[in-house]
């Protein structure tokens, strides 16, 4: 393939073409390797995403989604005419309706989502960090503890939801049983907004801690042990070592898992859906479940669901860029 380059004093154009070709020679396999992923994501995520953005400016629902209405004629043929009530462009009406509370209960769900996300990520991280630090020590049964503590990760979301719903069951759940045994009143968990959210948060914290724990454990093991030795020589107490060696050493891991955890929790659908189901009366819905209901319950309102989707995506993108900027300002680039 270098034959043309080998001939002496080639003119400029073939040389440039040769370079392009060499660049292709060198890069085609890289493209080949990412191509399957790009196609699947492009077709099934990016295309719907663009479509969703468009739909959020229409009044598309299940009832008006067809461009044409076709009826079978007696002769066996089909006769189609334009749908008189087909979906049309409505500008930002959907956004106005959602944000002013005309339709749905966006702000209630938004508040729930924020509470849900902050609480879940906070407990995921702190509990995960605590357990990881403990597991990072030399001690007996360490690997046994580690295996058992990761178990919830292997439990499918809806099984976890079901299990905890079972525990929180107001009539025969073990948790109320326990409350009665220590002389308290049983709680109708799913009759109040905050108790309902509390139950859902418990479930999700239980489910999500192992991932954080494992990620942080990996981060801890990548901190060179001589840093701890140096800190010890400098007379740092265990707490000071944790503050000045462990936490800074974990920053690359922490910043990544907190961002990912926030995005995942924000969009965590099955837990709320199965644990509270929005009870009581939609009081515990978060944005994703609200969107799901818009899309799948009653007359399926695709445009409203898409509007939800675009709003969620925008919120997360704003969050992610603000988060990155904060980290960058602190000298952390990821």
């Amino acid at each position: 393939m270098s034959s043309e380059a080998a001939t002496d004093a080639p003119a400029e154009p073939p040389k440039a073409a040769g370079r392009l070709r060499r660049s292709f020679d060198r890069n085609w396999y890289a493209w080949a390797m990412v191509l399957p992923t790009v196609i699947v994501l492009g077709v099934l995520v990016l295309f719907p995403l663009v479509q969703g953005v468009y739909q959020s400016f229409t009044n598309l629902t299940e009832a008006n989604q067809d461009e044409v209405i076709c009826t079978k004629t007696l002769g066996g043929g089909e006769e189609c005419k334009e749908n008189p009530k087909k979906a049309e462009f409505v500008g930002v009406d959907n956004y106005v309706d959602l944000l002013t509370g005309e339709r749905g209960s966006f702000w209630l769900q938004f508040t729930n989502t924020v509470v849900w996300t902050v609480a879940c990520v906070f407990f995921h991280y702190t509990i995960g960090l605590g357990l990881a630090v403990m597991l990072n020590r030399r001690m007996r049964f360490r690997s046994l503890y580690r295996v058992l503590l990761i178990v919830p990760w292997a439990v499918p979301g809806f099984v976890a939801a079901f299990g905890w719903k079972f525990l929180f069951n107001p009539r025969f759940g073990l948790i109320n049983e326990g409350l009665v045994n220590i002389g308290l009143d049983p709680v109708e968990w799913f009759n109040h907004r905050w108790t309902g959210l509390f139950a859902a948060i418990c479930t999700n914290v239980w489910l999500g801690v192992p991932f954080m724990m494992v990620a942080i454990l990996g981060g801890l093991q990548s901190i060179p042990s001589d840093l701890y030795e140096a800190a010890e020589m400098d007379g740092a107490t265990p707490w000071q070592r944790f503050r000045n060696v462990t936490l800074p050493g974990l920053r690359p891991v922490s910043s990544t898992v907190i961002l990912l955890g926030t995005i995942w929790t924000f969009n965590m659908f099955p837990i709320i859906f199965f644990v509270t189901g929005g009870e009581p009366a939609g009081q515990t819905e978060i944005l994703v479940t609200g969107a799901y209901r818009a899309a799948f319950e009653g007359v399926r309102n695709y445009s409203l669901a898409a509007t939800y989707g675009v709003l969620i995506l925008s919120l997360l993108m704003v969050f992610a860029s603000a988060y990155r900027r904060t980290l960058k300002a602190q000298g952390e680039v990821f």
Binding site: M1, A5, A6, G18, R22, R26
Partner: peptide
Amino acid sequence: EDVTDGRVLIGDKDVTHL
């Protein structure tokens, strides 16, 4: 590494882009 300019030869063989 890719040679940007000039040639590299092994024996009489130009290997610059091999």
